[in-house]
């Protein structure tokens, strides 16, 4: 972890209609830091990370990603999005394209790489996530775990500085969760800045630099995994941990 601030969030507020979903979030995420966000459903943790690449718009507060202020200016948004990779719960692979085309599309159109460069990067990443032999198949022909690994490779193909994971294992069969978590662990050790929304406490214990507990749109408690799992301070955190562990 270096001292450089990668993501700065100050007093972030967001409403869905009358529902106040994010209530003054303030935090700073350093380069190479791995932050795991946990909390009950509806606590605003997914909304929080979706605000970082502007899939959701916030109404008050500020977000800066790698020094670029997130405003409503389209060019700013596109610049930030090409630096921030995202992995979704439902994978969201493009079903009409083969795996390799899924990986090369944005490289060619956004990063303006040649097809040869893009395919070389794509094959290297498929190797890294352990499924080089699936390159010519369509997403529908792969298992859930394989699809999610392709989705991770697709995000990595853009050489992002930050990776966001929105419950990446929640839609998977139990026996496939491990293969995805292994890829994520390897990524964390390689020094990627990551924010992971998940219910996988084992993953949080093992690789997180910091665990953040969300409830009612606020960060109730945050700290190192040791502190968080062994000696939580707030009653709400204790209750949540007692229910899931």
């Amino acid at each position: 972890m270096s001292e450089k601030d990668m993501i700065v969030v100050e007093d972030l507020n967001k409403w869905f209609g009358d529902f106040h979903v994010l209530r003054g979030i303030t935090t700073t995420i350093k380069e190479r830091e791995v932050v795991v966000v946990i909390g009950p459903s509806g606590s605003g943790k997914s909304t929080f990370i979706r605000c970082i690449n502007h899939l959701e718009t916030h109404q008050a507060g500020r977000i800066a990603v790698d020094g670029v202020e997130l405003t409503n200016d389209l060019r700013n948004i596109e610049k930030i999005r090409s630096e921030v990779g995202m992995v979704f719960q439902q994978f969201n692979l493009f079903p009409h394209l083969t795996v390799i085309q899924n990986l090369t599309l944005a490289q060619i159109w956004v990063r303006k790489r040649t097809r040869t460069e893009a395919e070389a990067t794509a094959r290297r990443l498929l190797e890294r996530v352990g499924i080089p032999e699936q390159a010519e198949k369509f997403p529908g022909q792969l298992s859930g775990g394989q699809q999610q690994r392709v989705a991770i490779a697709r995000a990595l193909a853009m050489d992002p500085k930050i990776m966001l994971f929105d419950e990446p294992t929640s839609a998977l069969d139990p026996e496939m969760i491990k293969e995805v978590l292994d890829v994520m662990k390897e990524l964390a050790r390689s020094g990627m800045t990551m924010i992971v929304v998940t219910h996988e406490m084992g993953f949080a214990r093992e690789v997180a630099d910091r665990v953040m507990f969300f409830d009612y749109g606020q960060i109730v408690e945050e700290g190192t995994p040791e502190h968080f799992f062994e000696a939580p301070e707030h009653d709400r955190t204790k209750l949540f941990l007692s229910q899931i562990l």
């Binding site: 690449n53 899939l55 596109e78 610049k79 999005r81 090409s82 921030v84 990779g85 995202m86 979704f88 969201n92 692979l93 493009f94 599309l105 944005a106 159109w109 956004v110 697709r154 995000a155 853009m158």
Partner: peptide
């Protein structure tokens, strides 16, 4: 969302 997140 996936397309947007990739910066298209």
């Amino acid at each position: 969302e996936a397309a947007q997140a990739l910066g298209l």
